[in-house]
Simulated scan of single mutants.
Amino acid sequence: MENSPAPTEADVYEVLRECYDPEIPVNLVDLGLIYGVTIENRNINVIMTLTAPGCQMSTMITQDIQDKLLGIPGVEDAAVEIVWDPPWTPHLMSEAARKQLDLND
Rank of each mutant, 00 (worst) to 15 (best):
Q66G: 01
L69S: 01
S58Q: 13
L69G: 02
P22Q: 10
E76R: 12
I65V: 15
L28K: 05
A79N: 14
E81M: 03
M93D: 11
D85T: 09
P25L: 09
M60K: 10
L69K: 03
W88Y: 05
V46F: 03
P25I: 09
G32N: 07
P25D: 08
P22M: 08
M48S: 01
K68W: 06
L70Q: 10
I44P: 01
T49G: 14
G54N: 11
V26K: 09
L28D: 02
H91K: 14
M60N: 06
P53T: 10
D21G: 11
P86G: 04
T89Y: 06
P87G: 14
T89P: 05
D85H: 09
Q56D: 09
P73V: 01
I24S: 11
I61D: 00
I47N: 13
R98C: 12
E95Q: 14
Q66H: 04
Q63Y: 13
L31G: 02
I61P: 00
T38W: 04
T62H: 03
P25C: 07
I65N: 01
G54Y: 14
P53F: 08
V75Y: 01
G54D: 11
E95H: 13
M57E: 12
I47P: 00
D67Q: 15
V37M: 04
T51N: 09
I34K: 00
Q56G: 15
M48E: 02
D21T: 10
R98V: 06
T49D: 06
A96W: 02
G71W: 01
E95I: 13
G71Q: 07
T62L: 07
G36T: 06
L69N: 03
D30N: 10
A52R: 09
L92N: 11
R98T: 10
K68Y: 02
Q100K: 15
D21Y: 10
L69M: 08
G71P: 03
M57L: 15
Y20V: 05
T51C: 09
T89A: 13
V80Y: 04
R98H: 12
P73W: 02
A97E: 08
D85I: 07
V46H: 02
E76N: 13
L28R: 03
D21F: 07
R42P: 04
P73A: 07
G32W: 05
A96H: 03
V46P: 01
T38D: 13
Q66R: 15
N27W: 08
T38R: 13
R42M: 10
M48Q: 07
L31P: 06
L33S: 06
C55I: 09
N43C: 09
R98A: 14
T59S: 13
L31F: 03
E40A: 10
Y20S: 05
D64I: 12
P86Y: 07
A78L: 07
V29P: 00
Y20K: 05
A96I: 05
D67I: 05
N27T: 06
N41D: 15
N41R: 13
A96E: 15
W84Y: 15
V83W: 02
I44G: 00
I47A: 12
P25K: 04
V83M: 08
D21P: 07
A52W: 09
I65Y: 04
L33P: 05
T49P: 04
I24M: 12
P53W: 06
D85M: 10
P73Q: 04
T59M: 11
K99E: 15
Y35G: 01
L92I: 00
A79Y: 08
T59W: 06
G54P: 00
D85Y: 14
T62V: 11
W84V: 12
A97I: 08
N27E: 04
